[in-house]
Design a protein around this nucleic acid. Structure first.
Lengths: 238, 238
DNA sequence: CATCCAAAATGTGTCAACAGATCGATCGAA
DNA sequence: TTCGATCGATCTGTTGACACATTTTGGATG
């Protein structure tokens, strides 16, 4: 699986490609959290030299996806319950502001697209019972991505979509497979969109923040009875 | 002052040192915004090879302090009025949350230190009239740093102190020398600390957000009649 | 049988050298 | 004189190779 490296070559630099591939590999879980990485092994695996690989690793380090102690080699960051809680707090502040901006500055067409997305989500959820959990999850992602996009603040969008959401996706992998019920999330999304449609910035922000705070509470309840993952080490040859 | 570059040598890797030196050089204004950088020139200037330098540049790229178009070489990011406005919005959301967290979770000792800092600031401002503008500015920085620190959320602290504030400092350099009056800022700081002392999280957040929104409005008013900076190019030999 | 020391192997940090491309300059022609 | 093309030089992207440190493994010894 994932063995035939789909040639993402050409276009930009090698370091950029390795950066993207490593990033997705970490987020997808292909490189387990806490895993100790080896530069020569990764270089052989991706078919590049150690130069571009190290540059990609440094970018990953700055993105907080890997940690690099001196002379110890890079390690995939190991998510903790505390870090997850901190992340949710930051997300609450940022997405609350995003919802506020959408309510005040977004165009009617964008808001209509938001409404359509939520309606689709609700229909999918009501239609077939609980079989399409991951699709729901994708819809949830789409909704929050759309909010970030329509905020009209590129820096905020970048911060949310390119930094926070990836980290969240990584940390979420902790109790892999366990997903809280999304039915409540859908009605909360509905409320947020209603506030946005009313151009009520204050209500939009408050509703979004409560939505995220509730999600955090649910996840913390799930994490309360989950164990910790152990550290594995990568092997060179299969 | 600040000429005697405290020898940051030894301890960790060369790339790390170059990263720090380049970062401060950009933030201090030693490397002008929009400046096109040359890897060989920088390598000679810092006495290292191009390898570690490129790694440092990639970290700087991820930190949004430089931009790297393909085959064009890195350039110091050029701040724009739009980016500054976006930054202030993000800062408003994040620091509002930080103030809320301080009001709810900080210890009495930390709050007392906040109060002391604000009192010192007010005293310095009232004592000698307007001579110590830059010291005031430093106090302002210290106040916001303290709020970020005492939030008790390391991720939020890191985001504010290590990412947003440096960018803000860089963008602030636009109308260099021009500083808005800080007298108003001091009384706003007072109000924030009062809300925190009352453990009123809602009021603390609202006050902080208004404080930052006001600062943004003032700065935008200043920027409205300022020109744009032109692009310079670095020369190899002095 | 456990322990300690040594030596090899692996890995990180760093550097110098090599293709390919891009940018500028100079020279020629209309 | 001005526009364009060709030549040259500089720079980026990339690679392979070299010190130094760290760990692991093997053997010798108490």
């Amino acid at each position: 699986m994932g063995e035939r490296a789909d040639s993402t070559d050409s276009g930009d630099t090698l370091a950029e490609q390795v950066y993207r591939r490593l990033s997705t590999a970490i987020l997808v879980g292909d490189l387990a959290p806490g895993l100790k990485l080896s530069e020569p092994a990764l270089a052989r695996q991706y078919g590049v030299s150690r130069g571009p690989l190290r540059e990609a690793l440094h970018r990953l380090q700055e993105r907080k996806l890997i940690t690099r102690s001196a002379r110890q080699g890079p390690r995939v960051v190991r998510p903790s319950a505390a870090a997850l809680a901190e992340l949710f707090v930051v997300r609450e502040a940022l997405e609350g502001m995003a919802a506020r901006l959408v309510a005040s500055h977004a165009t009617d067409a964008e808001i209509a697209r938001l409404r359509a997305a939520v309606n689709d989500n609700a229909a999918a959820l009501n239609g077939n019972d609980g079989a399409l959990r991951e699709i729901d999850d994708r819809h949830d992602q789409d909704f929050h991505f759309a909010i970030a996009q329509y905020s009209g603040n590129p820096m905020l969008t970048e911060l949310l979509c390119a930094e926070l959401y990836p980290l969240l996706r990584l940390y979420r992998g902790l109790p892999a497979g366990v997903r809280p019920p999304t039915r409540r999330a859908v009605v909360e999304h509905e409320r947020i969109v209603c506030a946005i449609e009313d151009r009520d910035a204050d209500l939009a922000e408050i509703t979004m923040r409560r939505h995220i705070a509730a999600a955090r509470a649910r996840r913390e309840a799930v994490l309360a009875q989950a164990g910790t993952t152990d550290v594995v080490s990568i092997s060179d040859s299969p």
